[in-house]
Amino acid sequence: MLELRLVQGGLLKKVLDSLKDLVNDANFDCSATGFSLQAMDSSHVALVALLLRSEGFEHYRCDRNLSLGMNLSNMAKMLKCAGNDDIVTIKADDAADSVTFMFESPNQDKIADFDMKLMDIDSEHLGIPEAEFQAIVRMPSAEFARICKDLSTIGDTVVISVTKEGVKFSTRGDIGTANIVCRHNTSVDKPEEATIIEMEETVSLTFALRYMNSFTKATPLANQVTISLSSDLPVVVEYKVAEMGHIRFYLAPKIEE
């Protein structure tokens, strides 16, 4: 028996909106730790790891570890029917072939339940080793989204370079080139407006903008994004999910031939 009650149901809507274009079907794993997911896109270029810790739920009952195979676009359709302020409860019986999403309005005057068919998914679980990163950039998530969107109008790839000057996002295309440099800046009114660059070594990697733009669908989840870079490793683009977890996108770099 699984029963997870999330007061901030809107968070789950935002999580699904940030996943559904990248991954079609995935297993949600429920354990005492929390509600999590790990999935790759169909071409195995990107991987997403979601964790919503059990403590973040108002009520978290998971009698035994359970894997719920869901079509993410169908799950997103169901969650779209919840109000942004609704309390969302996810319920499933052990060995069930469906999952129930229950939506309660904040003042309890409307209660809805949606039942969605589960699917069997052969998913591969990958071990993600702990890595020391050469550079970690924290910046406003909206700024990062703007940069990825702007650069993708000019080129298909972005070179992200971190030096003592700051972090540089560059692209080139048929019409020309573009470079955007963001400097370390903590003299801001609000902490979420800061750009913090921690650099152990200079690093420069090339990535497909199409995927970066897909990751920025998670922007409504968090004011800040963390971009962790190391030579010859996938970049990690991380958004916090309130105080309860994170969504991490890993993207394999382009490799010089």
Partner: peptide, 14 residues
């Protein structure tokens, strides 16, 4: 020219 890397060449199946 550059070639798109693959996640499976960085992370192993467990």
């Amino acid at each position: 020219d550059s070639k798109q890397g693959n996640i499976l060449s960085f992370f192993k199946r467990v």
